[in-house]
Structures are given as C-alpha cells and as structure tokens.
Write a protein that binds this DNA or RNA. Structure first.
Lengths: 211, 211, 211, 211
DNA sequence: ATTTAAGCGAGACGGTACGTCATGTCTTGTG
DNA sequence: CACAAGACATGACGTACCGTCTCGCTTAAAT
C-alpha cells in the first residue's frame, strides 16, 4: 500500500457572511487529555451562577451558559445533562455553612439560627434556593435533593431542640423534630413569599415556650 | 413558479392527544360578535386544566392549549397573555373552598383544617398549587397572587386562633397570626417535599398547647 | 367568571449578553396569514442560489440559508424539508431553456446543441447541475429528479436524431435515442471532469456520420 | 469540589454497530515504534469500506471509522486528513483491474469491456465510484484523482480503438480516443442514473460501425 | 542501557449545524 | 370585530460530528 493519497492540506475557509462568526480565537480553553478539565467546570459553574443571579432560574438557558462560559454545548451536557443537575452543582458550591449555637436558651438558639439563615438568604443564596424549590416541581432529581437538604438541616437543628428537651425547656415526650421543622417551614414560606423582612421573634418565642 | 419540487416528507408524529388532534372537524366555535365568547373561555380553561393534570405545569404549552381547545393562538393570547395568567385562571376555577370549624378546641380546629387541606392537596389541587409556587419564582404576577392567597388563608385561619386566644387557650399577648402562619407554613413545606403523608398531629398538638 | 387574572403585560427583556443578539428589528418580513408568503419563498431560494454559487453544494447549510434569507429555520424546513428539495427548487428556477435547431444537418444540429449546453454550463448552471449529480448520490428524490431531467433532455434531443434517421442520415434500423444519449453522456462526463473547454467537434462528427 | 451532584442520565442508544460498540476489549493495537502501524491502516480502511458499503458515502463519518476500527481520531487524521483522502485510499484498495480483450472485432472488444465494467459496478465498486463522483463536486483533490482515473481508463481503452483503426474498422483520420471516451461517458451516465441494467449493445454497435 | 521520538487508543474540548419545538405576532377568511 | 387557522421570525433544545488537543502507554531507533 503506497501513500499516493496522503496529502495533508486543510481547506482555508474564506471569512464568511453565512458561517457563524468564530469570534477571535484568543485564549480559548482546550482539552487536557481524556479527562475532565477543572477550568472548564469552573467556567461553566461560574457562568451558570451569574446567569441565575441575574435572571433567576427561569432565565437559565443551557445555551447561554455555554456561550458565557465559552464552552461547547456538548461539554456542558456531558457533565450536567439537565438544567436541574447544573442548578444543583451551582448551589453545592455556594451552599451556606450554617452554625448552630448553644447559648443555653432555646429562644436564643432558634433566633440566632433563623436570623443567620435569613441573612444568608437575603443575598444570592435565597434566590438560588427559591430556584431549587421551583425546579423541584418538574425535576424529580431536584425534588429528591431538596428533600435531602431539608432533612440535613432539620437534623442539625434538632440538636438544638434536643438539648432544650434535655434541659426540660420543652415537654419530655415531644419529638424534638417538631419545633425544628416548624421553624424551618416558616422560613421557607417567608422566602417563597418574599417576606424575609417581616419580623419573626414572636414566632420564635412561641416555639421556645415550654408549654 | 410552480410547485413541482415541493414534496414534503412529514415524519410520523407519535400519537399524542395534543400534538396533532384533528378530532371531529364539525361544530367549530365562532365569533359571537364583538365580545368574548364564554364557550371559548371555557374550552381553553378546560384544555389547560386537563393538560396540567396530565403533564404537570412544566408540560403546559400555550400551543397545546390552543390546539386542544380548538382555539386560535391569538384568542388565547388576547385573554391570557402569559402562562402564569392562564395558570392562575385555571386555579381560580378549582380553588378549594376551605371550611373552618369551631369545635371549642384549638387542637381539633387546627387538626381539622390541616387534614382538610391535606386531603384537598392530595388530588389535583396540590399539583396545581405546587405549580403556582414554582411559577411564582419567575413570574411576579404569580408571586403577588400567591402572597394574596396566603394572606387570605391566613386571615381565615386566624379566626380560629383568635377564638382560642379569647378562650384563653393561648397567651393573651400573642399575635393570633403566629400559630396560624406556623401551621400553614408547615403544610406548604410538606407539600413541596412530597411529605403530605407523614403525620402532623404532634405538630398540631404543639401549636395547640397554651403556654 | 371574572377577569381578575387578565393583565396584559409583556416582560421587557433588558439588552443582554447571553440571549442571542436579535439584530436590528427593521424591515423584517411577516406572516401574511395562514398561507405561504411568496416573498419568503423568493428570499430563501435567492439565498440558497447565492450560497451554492459561492461554495458549491457541499457548502450549502440550511442554517446559512435561513440566516441569509432572514427567514426562520422552521419556515425553511416547512417548505423544503431536505437539502435536496431546496437544491431542486433552486435549479428549477434557473433551469436553462434549451433550443433544438433544425438545420437539415445532423452534425450542425448536434454541434449547436452541444455548444449551447456547454455555454450554459460554463456559467452557474453547470455548477448547479454538478451539485445535483453529487446530491443524487445520497438523496433518492434527487436521483429520481435527475433521471427525469435526463429523460426529458434525451427525448428532446431525440427529435433531432429522429429527423436525421428520417432523412436517411443514420441507419433506419437504429434507435434514435442511441446517438442522443451518447452525446449527452459525453457532455455529462466533460462537466464532471471539468473538461468543458476541450473540443468536441470530432466526437460530434463521429456521431453524425451515417455509418 | 466533590461530585455529589454529578448524575448522568444517559439515553439508551439505538443499537448501531458504530454508535457504541465496546466489542471485545482485549488485544488492543499499540504503537510499533516511530512508524505507521500497518495493522492500524488496515483496520481503518476496512472499517471505512464497511461503513461506505452499509450507508453510502454520505454516511461516512470520521468518528464512526475511528470507533469501528478501534483507532484514535488523531491517528485517523494523521494519515487521512480529509474524508476525500480516506475515500480515495479505500477505493485504491478495491479498484477493479479491468482486462481489455483483443478479439479482432471492435464490437466484441467494446462489448466485453462494457459488460465487464457493468458487472464490476453492480457490486460495491459502483457505489464507491459514484461516491467518488459525488465527493469530487466539493473536494478538488478528489476531482483531480477522478480525472486521473478517467484518463487512465481512457488510455487503456484507446488501445482497443487504436487497433481497430489500424485494422481499418474506423476511419483512419479519426482520433481513437473519441469512441473510447464516448463509451466510458455512456457508462458513467448509466451508473449515475442507476440505469446499468438497460441494454447497451445498440450503443456499442453504433460505436463499432466503421463509416 | 538509557534516552528520545514517534505512533497509538482514548476521549475531552470549543465549535457548527442539525432538525424539532414553542413563543408571541401577524394576516387572512368566515360568521 | 371576534374567531380558527396557521405562516412567520426568533431562539432554545439536545444530538452528532468536526478537527484539535493532551494524556499515558508502547515500541524502536539514537545515543
């Protein structure tokens, strides 16, 4: 077999009205071999986060993410095949780390928790969390993840109410998850209704009252 | 210019009620003069309700509504210019009428309310309400309407807690909206997390405990 | 049914980095009702013709046609669902009208025909015809159409050879399509091999010789 | 950054030999040092030939070739940088060896040649040759190669017509390439139009007639 | 014997085009 | 003038290939 037909030559495309403009071919990212490029991942998650922050989850378009991240759509879909997956990945990066205090007073502990969460949610995080709630309506994966978040947060807050029960601040026969779930539910509702600014100390006091 | 070369190869459409239903071509609705035709409105809202029930709110397409209702898209957009507006109109027609009992016991009253609402939500209504919550994330009109619903329900439930306060079942200095809002928030959270089946009597008992 | 939910309001999109630039919304074509818009058809066929003339059939992209014609892709696909269909429609518009002379000399008649066709093919028409030949390899519709073209041209040219046979210029028992098909085949081969410039009078003379 | 949220929902691929064939994962080919591996070359050309035979040249994808040949895309592009180059290499391997007989009768010689070529083309070779004609429309290298093939075949067939002229079977002053080119052109046209089955003896007889 | 250099399978990457779908606007013809 | 019908420009969808790239490896030739 000879090499008669081996001729290396690339067709040069003349700059063209019809073919989509390839823009300037400057500092584009490249493959780093047969494995995921962390720079690409970061660029995509950053882009998605920016867009969600700007327009909410309803305005999150996969194309727009790829465009802003200067990534190919195939790359985007390779790692995050649905909008929900992308949304969750973004949220994961900025998931707030909540601290749960132990002041010896249930009222103080719950109030601190509530105020901390409200503070966090007044920034971008609230917008993201609302987006996840909205997406959960249609994406079962997001639904599951949302419930998982809820369970985690509930469990953490239960440590507070359990301490209170051990101290005798709330009835010994009451499930400590009850008051924790009530508080978290209240905060979800306030977030959804854009009512984070309204006062909650009355509610917290009610929850902290022994009986 | 003749059409010699126009030959259309149409792909076979998957049998889907909305996608291409010619149905019976008789009895088409017509204009009834220079005013809105109630038959048209009913047909559209029915169609929308059916589609939401079948595929959820994420599957609600204006085109599909028009097609199923045998209505023109222009007609549809004339009266319900956004998906949210249509959604709200549909919900308006099937909004549950809640009854608030007066048994003389706060625990019983709240439990009845909660169980009634849970029962309602386990049918289509819950799906619709979740859809509205999701849509509220991106449509300010829906957000407003959702808050309005919440306020209405809250006010109605407050009648219950106010009676309890008057009876002395809860502290006299406590805002009666507090326990009402807590209960409603709990139910929202349960709806969102698909946890309507879990028990709530412990929570209600806590809310009904006086001091 | 009240009109509580009827609120006409369009969301104004802020000019945006992510959403594809909508360009200037100047003199865009519009629908003219529930029927095909001839302006649109013309714009699309013009655009396709230009692109083929510039880059050949291999460079014909449906997207590029839509872009240049300022037409939607859906519109394009509605009327010309394949590249081949579009190609044929374009060719139809510029199909050369051949004239077949009757000089009393077979040689002269064939030579005129050949030179006329060569002249036509040296312009865009040859490029188009080559494109159709190429497309026929993969698109059965184009294959059929190409054969049909061939048959038409053959039939027309047969009138010339039939006259010659009646005159006794070629054997009475010879099928008149034979020499016609030979000449056309020769010209096809010359077109495909970019050899239209090479002389053909020797070939024509051979075909015109009685026997 | 963990991968908690990376969950890939892969669609079920339609069973297609090229699309995702892991096949036996053993005995992978390797480099044999700083030179081209003949096994690789064979595997690639075989794969390409199979695919063309199955789906035609329009269905020839570089990716599919690499996949089926279990070769890296870089390897493929290193040696055959364009589809046309690959196509030509494949054709080179199965290029029919034509025999040109000398029966002493021009009619018999031409008829044998024509029938031999038709027989060859009715197998895969015709498909390949049509593919090359199609590809020539857009790839100048293929155009050149095609013309070269044509010239070779023409020259070989000219030996036949030249003998006939020497015998006095055709006019002494006629270029022997003329009848050879006519016959080849006819066969090309028949191939392109899928008309290889139609009879050609009338045409050949005309070409064999002396004066 | 060790270094160097290239071939090789693998597959991620930035892209472009595909063909389909829904959007919201429009213009018709009918009643 | 409301209405059905549906064409239209727009743009996102998710998929498929393109041609380039880097990786980690294998082997043979050069040192």
């Amino acid at each position: 077999m000879n090499d008669t037909f081996r001729f290396v030559k690339r067709k040069i495309m003349s700059a063209d009205t019809d073919t989509q403009a390839p823009a300037e071919p400057n500092d584009t990212r490249h493959s780093i071999g047969a494995r995921k490029n962390p720079e690409t991942e970061a660029a995509i998650l950053d882009a998605a986060a920016e867009i969600i922050a700007e327009k909410g989850i309803g305005g999150l378009r996969m194309e727009a993410v790829a465009r802003r991240a200067k990534a190919g759509k195939a790359t985007l879909y390779r790692w995050w095949p649905t909008r929900g997956a992308l949304l969750l990945a973004v949220y994961q990066r900025k998931k707030p780390h909540m601290t749960y205090r132990d002041t010896g007073s249930l009222y103080q502990d719950l109030l601190h928790f509530a105020n901390d969460l409200i503070t966090v949610w007044k920034g971008d995080n609230g917008l993201f969390f609302k987006a996840i709630i909205a997406e959960a309506e249609s994406d079962p994966d997001v639904t599951d993840k949302l419930r998982e978040y809820h369970a985690e947060r509930l469990e953490a807050l239960c440590a507070v109410t359990r301490r209170a029960r051990d101290r005798g601040d709330i009835p010994a026969d009451e499930d400590p998850t009850i008051r924790a779930e009530m508080l978290i539910s209240l905060l979800w509702q306030r977030l959804i209704n854009n009512r984070l600014d309204e006062k909650i100390d009355g509610h917290v006091r009610m929850l902290a009252n022994s009986d």
